[in-house]
């Protein structure tokens, strides 16, 4: 009995320390922690005075500051063509899984709506098992709307999925060999496709980039895809928070995909775009899907050796105008 009393008293003391710590931490240290390690949430907390929040990855900003005269982000350029104020919540390689946690933090009735990039490539096995995934999982854990100290502890105790590079690679290869494609052999899986075409086996730059395009875009999005579920949740969140939701399908380098692989690949990309529109576009429920997939030409993509969604000034302006047009159309 004596031991129970002693332990009970100490557990009580520990609880008091934890409560005091939580209060002090939230009051004095949490914001500076976010500024350093959870910048998007830090920014979001300071952005609720805008009309729209713009959730995006690196496609928002320029990677060609030497040639661009105007290096503004897509989100900033959008404001040139509409009357709404738009603030960017963008981080490199971020995807819908991270965005949905951030969106949960938006207080009800503070902003009009959100614009979320629909990056088709972010559904690919390469992105799902990319080198940034561990870090993004950490952000996802940190951004969950838990009490601040719990959120902090999930980060410091690494309570999120962490996979080694080897595990990620194995998972990626499993996707390539098992995800079915709607074609006959050898194009029925990514692995069969590249294993059975001679052009992928040579070691020149064309073969390398062709392979990258194949691995980045040859897949079919369906209802069970984890990213689809993330977007489903974003739609539900927007509805519950009374937010207008604009999903804009990011332009992909279709010219290059067609040149390197052919119509069998571009058809897959288009089908995935069509899936997004069919599933989410519903103006009566205040959800709009903007189709920008084929609006930017090859010359306006800044990367030449890897498929990305990095656009030059002209490319970003095309996207900004398209989004602004939709914003202007929303009553």
């Amino acid at each position: 009995m004596e031991i129970v009393k002693k332990i009970g008293l100490r557990i009580l003391l520990l609880a008091v320390i934890a409560i005091a710590t939580s209060a002090i931490y939230k009051r004095y240290f949490y914001q500076s922690f976010l500024e350093k390690e959870g910048f998007l949430l830090y920014r979001l907390n300071r952005s609720v005075n805008a009309d729209y929040l713009f959730f995006s990855a690196s496609s928002d900003y320029t990677f060609d500051s030497i040639n661009d005269i105007d290096t503004s982000r897509v989100s900033v350029l959008t404001m040139n063509y509409c009357t709404k104020s738009v603030k960017s919540i963008a981080g490199g390689a971020h995807h819908a899984g991270v965005f949905k946690q951030l969106i949960k933090h938006i207080p009800k009735n503070t902003i009009e709506g959100i614009i979320v990039s629909f990056n088709i490539r972010s559904f690919s096995p390469k992105w799902l098992t990319g080198i940034n995934e561990n870090l993004l999982q950490k952000y996802t854990a940190l951004y969950k709307p838990n009490p601040v100290l719990i959120s902090r502890l999930t980060g410091s105790l690494k309570f999120y999925p962490i996979r080694t590079q080897k595990e990620l690679e194995q998972e990626r290869n499993a996707y390539f060999s098992s995800w079915p494609l709607p074609y006959l052999f050898p194009k029925n899986t990514v692995k069969n496709w590249y294993s059975n075409e001679r052009r992928f086996s040579t070691n020149d730059s064309i073969a390398n980039i062709s392979l990258e395009y194949l691995k980045s875009f040859a897949f079919v999005i369906n209802d069970n895809h984890s990213r689809t579920k993330d977007f489903d949740e974003i739609v539900e969140l927007a509805k519950s928070k009374n937010l207008k939701l604009i999903l804009h399908v990011l332009p992909e380098n279709m010219d290059e995909a067609r040149r390197l692989i052919g119509d069998s690949l571009t058809a897959l990309i288009q089908a995935n775009r069509d899936f997004a529109i069919a599933r989410y576009h519903n103006p009566t429920a205040s959800v709009w899907v903007i189709d920008n997939l084929e609006k930017v030409r090859h010359v306006d993509f800044t990367d030449r050796d890897f498929p990305t969604e990095h656009y030059n000034q002209n490319g970003r302006t095309i996207i900004a105008k398209s989004i602004a047009k939709q914003l202007n159309a929303i009553k």
């Binding site: 710590t21 931490y25 950490k138 410091s156």
Partner: peptide
């Protein structure tokens, strides 16, 4: 002793490193 524990616990909960 317990003041010391308080400081240590405060540091663990508030300032533990988050890199893997």
């Amino acid at each position: 002793r317990w003041s010391g524990y308080g400081v240590i616990i405060f540091f663990i909960l508030s300032f533990a490193g988050t890199t893997n």
